[in-house]
């Protein structure tokens, strides 16, 4: 079992440390050649979606990765990663993989002064710490998308087929349950 972490820009190192802690192997995706190695799951980390999306395209990684995600590759996407997966955004024309049938609102809580921390249930998990940094939330979902978490009435976590997408950063808190859920329930380890 090996998890690939998109390592173009952002907080990918934090995810890698958690994978190590949980005993999962990982590899970094920085360029097209890295995609020829085999991997069983993918983490799309936080960072800036515009920077990551630009690099994905420029480095020739966009289409092969999109193919893999469409083909059912398990994905855990946090914050910018959620934006990369979303079918569309209600306040931005840019869209990337479009494999997740949801509409996101970018920078939904405003600028950095709107960043916050909360504790909420997430699917079957209770009291999960949630760190939102200039975060998006999900404005609407197609009806076959499972909603896992809401904060103040806004959707902040969903699962659709093998894609687990959330608008906060489990990699910044010490609770490992979401990464465990990804490895166990979606990657089937």
């Amino acid at each position: 079992m090996k998890i690939a972490v998109l390592a173009l820009q952002g907080a990918f190192y934090e995810h890698e440390m958690i994978l190590t802690e949980l005993g999962a192997d990982y590899m970094e995706l920085r360029k097209k050649e890295d995609l020829s190695d085999s991997f069983d799951g993918l983490i799309l980390p936080g960072g800036e979606s515009t920077a990551q999306g630009k690099l994905l395209k420029e480095l020739g990684m966009f289409e092969p990765l999109q193919e893999k995600i469409r083909g059912g590759l398990p994905v855990l996407a946090t914050c910018a990663g959620l934006i990369l997966l979303a079918e569309k955004s209600c306040n931005d024309e840019r869209a990337w993989f479009q494999t997740l049938p949801v509409t996101v609102r970018r920078n939904a809580y405003g600028r950095q002064l709107g960043s916050f921390h909360a504790v909420q249930d997430f699917g079957s998990l209770s009291a999960v710490p949630m760190t939102f940094i200039r975060a998006p939330y999900i404005e609407s979902v197609r009806k076959d998308v499972e909603i896992l978490a809401k904060v103040d009435g806004n959707i902040v976590g969903v699962r659709y087929q093998n894609q687990l997408a959330i608008s906060f950063h489990p990699e910044l808190d010490s609770d490992r349950r979401i990464h465990r859920m990804f490895l166990k329930d979606i990657c089937n380890t």
């Binding site: 390592a7 173009l8 820009q9 952002g10 907080a11 990918f12 190192y13 934090e14 936080g46 960072g47 800036e48 920077a51 914050c79 910018a80 950095q112 960043s115 916050f116 921390h117 760190t131 940094i133 200039r134 950063h169 910044l172």
Partner: peptide, 14 residues
Amino acid sequence: YQLNKQLAQMLKGG
């Protein structure tokens, strides 16, 4: 302060 340090973490590699 944590949230502010964490925003910088999101800028890494950029």
